[in-house]
């Protein structure tokens, strides 16, 4: 067995596992011998910011965020793509121009939809 080329790997593996387990085992033995466990309601609480947690974590979030996501795509991402498109416009092929047009139309569709939803109304 010691002649096997994998023997050093086995030794390293054992040493690695021992290196990980030994401190944990030592801490466990120490706690069992000297230091008693003292759980309590505050100590076992989930949150650790000093405040008591209020309510349930399983709540529904209002899905209004998708409006912001659409508007962000229309105004921000579009600008990011439009600038290189405008710079490289003269050298583009017809197919590339069409692809960009489709992309723009999709985003404009989002803008029209947002307009119809009256998201853009400032009140």
């Amino acid at each position: 067995m010691t002649n096997s080329p994998y023997f050093p790997v086995l030794v390293l593996l054992a040493a690695g596992v021992g290196f990980a387990i030994a401190p944990l085992a030592l801490a466990w033995i120490w706690a069992w011998k000297f230091s008693p466990r003292k759980p309590g309601p505050s100590k076992n609480a989930i949150y650790e910011c000093g405040l008591e947690s209020a309510g349930d974590a399983w709540i529904q979030f209002h899905p209004g965020y998708y409006l912001y996501a659409i508007i962000f795509l229309v105004f921000d991402i579009e600008a990011v793509f439009l600038l290189p498109f405008a710079v490289a416009f003269a050298g583009l092929t017809f197919a590339a121009g069409m692809a960009m047009l489709v992309f723009l139309l999709l985003l404009v569709e989002g803008l029209v939809w947002a307009y119809q939803k009256q998201v853009l109304v400032w009140s």
């Binding site: 230091s35 309590g40 505050s42 100590k43 609480a45 000093g50 405040l51």
Partner: peptide
Amino acid sequence: APQVVRLYNQMAE
């Protein structure tokens, strides 16, 4: 004060 005491309680011995 309640938060301070609760934080103290949450510390491990």
